[in-house]
Design a protein around this nucleic acid. Structure first.
Length: 489
DNA sequence: CGAAGCCGTGTTAGCACGGCTTCGGTGCACTAAT
């Protein structure tokens, strides 16, 4: 008899494993490290949830967003799995204390990389039997860890502290570079590597060069009146998100909302919910929108501004057509578009002046907090965290280099790396000589089997039969069906 | 880089203009005041 299968049925109600799941789960149970790139909808969470319940001890799951943790905890509790908690800043001090005190009683604890660093949490881990450490949405390690959320690069230290439990990294999209980076930053040893294809055959890839913003808007208006709905539009500033949402509302009379990080939590939650339940036709957003969104029927993703690298692009277009039906990725670009991403790239790092000021101050204490750096030198929060992280890292070296040189060389190296990624993306946009899908897949170390039709604007023009599809859309759901659908979300 | 917003000026009372500065994305957690 198959113990694992009956365990699956008993706790999760599934009668069979999906492609790839079993191999990963068995590896984790046997204490191996795993790197798994699984297509959305192929049951990523189960790969750590099942081993967490199977093994004795507590599983620690690192998750990038509080909302994602909340969803997971809720879902598990609905499945009758109750020894689950999310440890984060939503909690009141008493609740935090309660979780810490009873940590060993939980089977699964969700946590952000930041909270993982809290001394009160980390010190408990030392004494705890940690069954496994899972990093969900592991591409965040290489996408955010180096500058924006440096605590992502500190996970390995906590892992050592917890007695080196088996570690599993999970993501839906990681380029070949990112995969190497993740394995290195988590110190995975001889990991089992499982990679699904990232190719999405039902997404037609279209890139169009425009003269200026006016032409972009004109195209946007046309496409929004023709394309089947719902759809998404990505832009790179909050203001533009609001502006274009208003533009489409007026010009096309479609239900359109903006979504970006500057909106209140309630507004974001509301817009997201409305979009998920088809009350909004088009969402006009910055890169704040997307992670953890699993909406099956998104028919198009338009990039009004292009994303800063190929992997972000793949993640963004991958939100279209999850139901398998024909969908579209359309990029509109003009000559002025390269400016802003370059400015933003520079702004990501502290200035040479700031680096000098901080590294040459004789009164700077050995153990510096980011708060101290903000208050004493007036650097902004993200830069302060960046500086704090690399000061700490420098202190662990033999200090053959001055601190200033050390940090400056990190900045230079990272900036060049990111610029190269941006250039790669722009090269992809401007070239019209070879298949876009082939070039896109190459970033993920995949070969294009050249079987996809319609493929891309280089391989052959294609127009979605739009008016037809709009009429063909599913009939209005009854309120009972809608309620069922919402609850299911 | 380039758009938006702010400031002082200059001529004359409400506004136009040039020059200057600022800002542009992603989220965690925490603080201090209620």
């Amino acid at each position: 008899m198959d113990k694992l299968k009956s365990f699956l049925e008993k706790h999760f109600g599934h009668t069979a494993f999906k492609e790839g799941q079993r191999e990963i789960i068995e590896a984790v149970i046997h204490g191996e490290d795993v790197f798994a790139m699984l297509a959305t909808g192929s049951g990523k969470s189960l790969c750590y949830q099942l081993p967490a319940l199977w093994k004795k001890g507590t599983a620690v799951i690192v998750s990038p967003l509080l909302s994602l943790m909340e969803n997971q905890v809720q879902e598990l509790k609905q499945n009758g799995i109750r020894q689950v908690a999310a440890y984060n800043s939503f909690l009141r001090p008493q609740e935090k204390e309660h979780i810490l005190r009873h940590l060993a009683d939980y089977k699964i604890v969700y946590i952000s990389p930041e909270s993982l660093q809290h001394p009160e949490f980390a010190s408990r881990l030392e004494k705890l039997d940690v069954s496994l450490l899972a990093v969900d949405e592991a591409h965040c390690i290489s996408q955010w860890g180096h500058e924006f959320r440096t605590d992502y690069l500190r996970i390995k230290e906590i892992r050592r502290l917890a007695g080196n439990p088996p570690c599993i990294a999970l993501t839906a999209t990681a380029s070949a570079d990112a995969k190497e980076d993740i394995i290195e930053k988590l110190e995975l040893t001889n990991p089992l590597i499982h990679c699904d294809s990232v190719d999405r055959a039902n997404i037609y890839i279209d890139v169009r060069k425009k003269k200026n913003e006016e032409e972009k808007r004109e195209t946007l208006r046309e496409e929004c009146s023709r394309l089947p709905l719902p759809g998404m539009i990505y832009v790179n500033s909050r203001l533009k998100a609001e502006e274009l949402a208003a533009f489409i509302r007026e010009e096309n009379g479609l239900k359109t909302s903006a979504y970006h990080g500057g909106m209140s939590n309630e507004d974001r939650r509301l817009v997201q919910q409305q979009f998920l339940s088809d009350e909004i036709d088009i969402i006009c957003c910055t890169n704040a929108f997307g992670m953890g969104i699993n909406k099956p029927n998104i028919r198009f993703v338009i990039h009004y501004h292009y994303s800063k690298d190929m992997e972000s692009f793949m993640q963004e277009i991958g939100r279209a057509g999850r139901d398998g039906r024909q969908s579209l990725s359309l990029v509109l670009h003009d000559a002025a578009d390269g400016m802003l991403p370059r400015r933003m790239l520079e702004h990501e790092f502290p200035s040479g002046e700031e680096i000098r000021m901080v590294s040459q101050d004789p009164d700077r204490p050995e153990s510096t907090t980011s708060r101290f750096l903000m208050e004493k030198y007036g650097v902004e929060e993200v830069h302060a965290r960046f500086l704090q992280f690399y000061i700490h890292k420098w202190q662990q070296t033999a200090r053959t280099q001055t601190l200033e040189d050390f940090i400056s060389s990190v900045v230079q190296r990272r900036m060049e790396w990111k610029l190269q990624k941006l250039n790669q993306k722009e090269y992809w946009l401007h070239q019209t000589g070879s298949c876009r899908r082939t070039a896109l897949l190459k970033v993920f170390d995949e070969h294009n089997k050249n079987t996809v039709t319609p493929c891309c604007d280089v391989c052959g023009e294609y127009t979605m039969h739009v008016e037809h599809q709009r009429k063909m859309q599913e009939p209005e759901l009854s309120w009972e069906e809608r309620l069922k659908w919402i609850l299911h979300q």
